[in-house]
């Protein structure tokens, strides 16, 4: 994998993270912020998998797996609260 590919990927991921963060700051309701954090989680899982590939350590993929599962659980808890379920 060439150096340019890594740099382009990191630039795109950082732009995505920053845009999600701006939406989290701006969003008028809590639902907008929850969706922004979930989008950021997806972007970050892509970053974790890519860095595991760049560092050539495949143990690092477990972190991405665990994080995506648990972030889903947290988002389900937030959504249940916003709908008045819990």
């Amino acid at each position: 994998m060439s150096e340019t590919t890594v740099l382009v990927f990191l630039a795109v991921i950082c732009t995505g993270i920053f845009i999600c963060f701006l939406r989290m700051l701006k969003g008028p309701t809590a639902s907008d912020r929850a969706v922004a954090v979930d989008t950021m989680t997806t972007t970050v899982v892509a970053l974790l998998v890519f860095l595991g590939f760049v560092f050539q350590r495949y143990v690092y993929l477990d972190v991405a797996l665990v994080y995506s599962l648990l972030a889903f659980l947290g988002l389900v808890a937030i959504a249940r609260f916003l709908e008045g379920g819990i």
Binding site: M40, L48, V59, Y67, L70, A71
Partner: peptide, 27 residues
């Protein structure tokens, strides 16, 4: 939700510091 985002980024920073188990616990 903002605290959840702080925890998410702390997890990535642990990952950058070559500590994947700490990142997993933090996540």
């Amino acid at each position: 939700i903002a605290a959840c985002m702080v925890s998410l980024i702390a997890s990535i920073l642990f990952y950058f510091l070559q500590a994947p188990d700490v990142a997993m616990a933090e996540a």
